[in-house]
Write a protein that binds this DNA or RNA. Sequence first.
RNA 1: GCGUCCCUAGCUCAGUUGGUUAGAGCGUUGCAUUGACAUUGCAGAGGUCACUGGUUCGAAUCCAGUGGGACGCACCA
Length: 895
Amino acid sequence: MSKEIPAQYDASKVEDKWYAYWMENNYFHSEPDDRESFTVVIPPPNVTGVLHMGHMLNNTIQDVLVRRARMQGYNACWVPGTDHASIATEAKVVRKLRSKGITKKDLTREEFLEHAWEWTHEHGGIILEQLKKLGASCDWDRTAFTMDEDYSESVIDVFIDLHEKGKIYRGERMINWDPAAQTTLSDEEVIHKEVDSKLYHIRYKIVGEDEYVTIATTRPETILGDTAVCVNPGDERYTHLHGKKVIVPLVNREIPVIQDDYVDMEFGTGCLKITPAHDVNDYEIGQKHNLETIDVLNADGTMSEAAQLYIGEDRFDVRKKIANDLEEVGHLIEVENYKNKVGFSERTDVPIEPRLSLQWWVDMDQLSKPALDNVMDDTVEFHPAKFKNSYRHWMENIRDWNISRQLWWGHRIPVYYYGEGHDDYVVAKSLEEALPKAQDKSGNQDLKASDLRQDEDVLDTWFSSWLWPISVFDPDYIRTGKANQELQYYYPTKDLVTAPEIMFLWVARMIVSGYEYMDDKPFDNVYYTGIVRDKKGRKMSKSLGNSPDPLELIKKYGADGIRMGMLFATPAGNDLPFDEKLCEQGRNFCNKIWNAFRFLTMNMEDGEKYDPTLEINNEDISDRWMAARIQQTIQEVNKDFDNYKLNDALKKVYSLIWDDFCDWYIELAKPEVYGEKIPVDKLNTALGFFEQLMKLLHPFMPFISEEIYQHIQDRSTNEALLISEWPKADESKLNEDDLKLFGTLQQMVSSLRNIRSEVNVSPKEELDVLISTKEQSTADALLENQLVLKKLESIQSLSIATEIDKPKVYSSSIVDGNELFVPLDGLVDFEKERERIQKEIDRLEGFLTGIEKKLANKGFINNAPENVVELEKKKKADTEDSLAKLREQLKDFEK
RNA sequence: GCGUCCCUAGCUCAGUUGGUUAGAGCGUUGCAUUGACAUUGCAGAGGUCACUGGUUCGAAUCCAGUGGGACGCACCA
């Protein structure tokens, strides 16, 4: 042996070694040059986040794409980074402070931000370190963060620019209020869930009468904010109520009965209470009918002063209480169980409250147009394409984007107020810039800096990450309008790999900003990954505690093993039902590869050098076949990559290595005599093949492939597999005849093994084998390559000819129309053999009947394409031929 | 409620414009193994392609309906 090859593959050792080597040699780093760029920007994980299975899957896929592109000769650049994740991070900081007995209210904005930065520095970037364990070949020199100083500036620049263009405005609207985080949320951050709730039927007394009217509501606490009761004008049951007033129970406030078509006569009692402050529709009806708005809730979800009752108590406690209280005074008529959908905050998971509020908005109507068109015409391609449907639906019904958040962690809105009026503000990058503007706009030159007050709110996290593909390369671009060399070179990026969950939150908006600012798409392709689920089909999540620790998995199975396990089971857009079994399979594959390599090295003489070659021995069918199989696989794998079918590509490489190379090629390479070594030429060819296989495997399993490659190369050069050339498809090496001939030989070997198994003959026992071929040419070819049969099966004598003398007692098989006999005196059970042959005859007869029926059908003959008819005819002839042979054989056993 | 997608072996899924008797991995059964690998090898069993009807010479594949499931969107109190 020329090198010490450890008997056991130690994944963690090998993986750390090569990752360090790649980093030392700066292989992941990219600079613009004259090659074509292949850019991927990472979906930035939350800066204080921890790696979960979703990241593992997502980043493995990106790495596969990037590594292959790098080998193909592109200038591959994968930009890593993190997102400040405004609401998510702030929630974490608040929680941490609370555990220390500090509440956010006790702190000033500056103090709170100090804590937040501290937390960010402490936990920030951990997730990126974890990605290195996975093998991610990111250009770490480019690591970006959405709150980096220059990045933040670009975010503010966009706000200023869109405001100037009139695309950003301030408006009072019904918004989604998160009472836990105490901020607004965009519609996309609200998750609607079906919940079991109750429908309360409550009666209101009609003023001046002893009559009552009954309404139905799921939120009885909001009756305190009722300012009308509404009926459908066409509802004859309630005609008598027109123009009258009713009394809100408990608070005894008189409110009018109004009429509006909006009310569904069929639903509930057909009588609807109107609470303009707490329901989107009620608000609109309130506007239309000039109703008063009474906001009975505080920001934290407790009842406000305006409610008059239950002040300071939580909305859900009050719901129960008020039902009791109403019942006591005889106003609660009925409570029925009811299922309805309630909006929950994506981040805090509490029911949101519709609330009237003054917020900042982006007018999406015009901005979204190019983003819709360019996805529909595949300028930006979605994989799988089915997601185009929901994308279109969302884009066609797009609503304005609420971008202000009542939080502190994030990009503070660059708006400075100088007065109380609706338009008494200016937009500017700093207080210094704001002052002259404010003086101008107000006409008050005495205005001082201290008279200006910056907006307290920050921007939606996605308002910064929608610039990701632009600002990571040139944060000044928004301001200057002139793309630097980097942006020109790397934009548009190639592939975006992300979860469908954030299609609207992030993907759509990047496309919008891309067309608005670059006048070009941000990426050519979007690859949507599936959701990683546990065995019960539940989404893996921290709260459920059903997610394995990725780092533990890597320790146990190796990063290569996990990468393979995940990729094996996940086509684009399909969920990944995760099972550790998959990782085990990946680890076993590493072991298989390692042992195949070990075996080859054991055949080397001491001091001998590895000298892998792509030269093959043209006399050797196994060489020709292996070369052809590799060619075939290169072509298929390239095609799979083009279609983003990474799992199919991996399966083909897996099968090429395990089934073809290990189980057939290496078996055939073994010397005939045990103990002898593989001839050097053959060994070098095998190593040459091995090297090709490692190249094909590298994007999927970068570590073990690099390890093997470096051993095989045995060079002192610095060249790494990761920057070696992706195997080129070469039609001339794809010899179909070789594939077919070897296929026949494989089937013959299988047949012989099958016969042994059926007749219970040990694999060691040497057999006499007789093969009667249909054609002389087949006989010649088999004779020429009889070594294949002899090496893989214990054979004492082998006769191959068109005419052979059938043995008296035998077991047999038909392979491609050729008969194969094994004389087995005393071993053959006549009864069993007859059954076996009869079964085969029955099968073929059934098959033949089908073909004959087809061929007798005039419709088929007339309408089917000629080649299909020809094929049927050939099938018929072949089947008849085989049947004749089988019937002959059957006779032999009836003797 | 509207829209989209899905239903193929015990499980997870392939099956590209309709054309061999529908494939893979895992699992399962039997056999083998003292030197590459039990993290192995060989051989086998296993499917009315959810159901019904239609189009066609021919349907897992196209169409319609039924049943079951997933997701997206929406203001049903």
